[in-house]
Design a protein around this nucleic acid. Sequence first.
DNA 1: TGTGCTGTTGTTAACGCTAACAATCGACCA
DNA 2: TGGTCGATTGTTAGCGTTAACAACAGCACA
Lengths: 343, 343
Amino acid sequence: MLPDGAPRALALSDVAVHAGVSHQTVSRVVNGHPNVAPATRERVQRAITELGYRPNAAARALVTGSTRSFGLVISHINQYGPAQTLLGLEKAARAAGYSLGVAILDDDSEAAMREAVDRFVAQSVDAVVALSTYGQAVEALRRFEAPVPLIAVQVGRDESRPTVWVAQEVGAELATRHLLELGHRTVHHVTGPPDSLEARGRVVGWRRALEQAGAPVPEPLCGDWWASAGHAAGRALAARVRAGQEDVTAVFVANDQMALGLLSALADEGLSVPGDISVVGFDDVPECEYFSPPLTTVRQDFAELGRRGVELVLARLRGEPLESQPVLPQLIVRRSTGPARRV
Amino acid sequence: MLPDGAPRALALSDVAVHAGVSHQTVSRVVNGHPNVAPATRERVQRAITELGYRPNAAARALVTGSTRSFGLVISHINQYGPAQTLLGLEKAARAAGYSLGVAILDDDSEAAMREAVDRFVAQSVDAVVALSTYGQAVEALRRFEAPVPLIAVQVGRDESRPTVWVAQEVGAELATRHLLELGHRTVHHVTGPPDSLEARGRVVGWRRALEQAGAPVPEPLCGDWWASAGHAAGRALAARVRAGQEDVTAVFVANDQMALGLLSALADEGLSVPGDISVVGFDDVPECEYFSPPLTTVRQDFAELGRRGVELVLARLRGEPLESQPVLPQLIVRRSTGPARRV
DNA sequence: TGTGCTGTTGTTAACGCTAACAATCGACCA
DNA sequence: TGGTCGATTGTTAGCGTTAACAACAGCACA
């Protein structure tokens, strides 16, 4: 009924008057303190619902020093992994009674990272979760002296700071070994961007698996996560095949988008998958199953990552220094991989 | 140097003492008020940087009643469109000096929507932007009487509430007309989930284009945005082709993921695209170009959507009732569409 | 019947900030 | 020379909440 011009929001004292008690008693009821007589509690409860009172978060934050909120610093939110992690994180945070502020990094520079964290600090969030896995932003994180707990997710192990991460090397080894076991002499690799820690981890795992098997380690092709880079890599590999290079029969691509581009390029070049070349991706995006052919890949449980991130934050806030275990990836075999062709 | 146990954050008064002025003068400097003598201003500035002071957002919010933050209610964040919109929205909000809280809906029920908005209200955000385009959540939005400005994005036109939206019908018409102009007798349609307003808008546009051209309107196939549904639809259409149904030569699929599934099914069934069947998608996800074949689709500028959402919010906060124009989609022709085969 | 406890309620003082008003100081003009 | 005005600065109050303490009842026990 009232025009939009605010009728001044209800305060504790309004409820107190309505219920005939002091504002402190109302506060006690709101916060579930023990020593309140059942009759009083009920009377206050009724007043609260009748008036539709809701506590003022700012006033609370001012006096308690806690906003019951986290800040999430994130980049590349339009990619599957980060989006999925955000999903898990928000849900877990909400379940724990925290709300989530989001800052999306324009670029992965130290300055951007610092500015985002700063803004959260000014908002007095209770903790900041950072999910940038790129270059200087990661370095920046390592050195930060923030006046709030700062938790890193998905940046690989870090001794100096609490961290949650997926064991990228393990996933890459899984993929590479799978191909070697199918009889391929070696496995080529299309990497992610060089400044990504995840991309580097996958390179390490791939190389390790090859070396352990005594297989030659070819020069990796450099990509950037996007399908276009995979396409370029596919053309490059096809050229090598045409030039008679015999060992190009298996490729481990650092993510599914690039694998899609690669499949497309190979098809254009008249190479069959897995007949001529076997391909493995990474991430297990939901569309994998409908690539041509359906893509063998490594699944990362991003939602779990988000969940563990929140766990770590909460443990930290409670003062328990929880040692977090890495999340383990899993190989999903589909139809893009097959036995090496006999030469 | 100090142990983590807080040394009590700096307050206005600390700066005041350090600079030898009153706390109010410091406040004036911080907020850029005019009447401060240049010498004083500089002295205060120096004190601020020396001490590393940062204003307390909670105290500010308490007294001004504004947190300089928006709440974003969103669902399906792991899909391309919502993620991209979030990106545009956050950037625009940040540029305007607002921070962004995010609530992700567990499901598209009215209860979930109501709870999310409630939580933002309790946090006293300055405005809530809602980006759910599904069933009851939309209905809920329509009826909400929130004590803060509530802006809806992407839910189609709404007379009762400020809205930003993409003209879905226009996009669907573009796609359908493109196929008709290539000589196809009619165009089949794979829809999104029936409770999605966007999906409904696309059905409307598709139907309208067919009717305007005097083409028969076949029964649409019902999907859910996911590639698996597109795959199922593809098999169903292939079955019709085998059964001799002649008019199955063109399909407009309500999004790119489903189009991918459909392409995969058609390939499995030995049908060529665009030789036997032409396919158009919707969204223009970055991978489109690398589908087999590259997908003709309708591009939506999601980032622009986010930007306009913020514009609308800001206009509303300033009290200017801005009439927002719809964002117009655009047809991107690639290789999945071609002329109808002669019968 | 007085003493001390326990459970319940009220009173007061912060938290850090901005808004409103008051005070001071020159300068300028009549 | 006194008064007025504008620019600058300081003082005070209050935003809505929680924490700390004070007050008061009722009860058990000596």
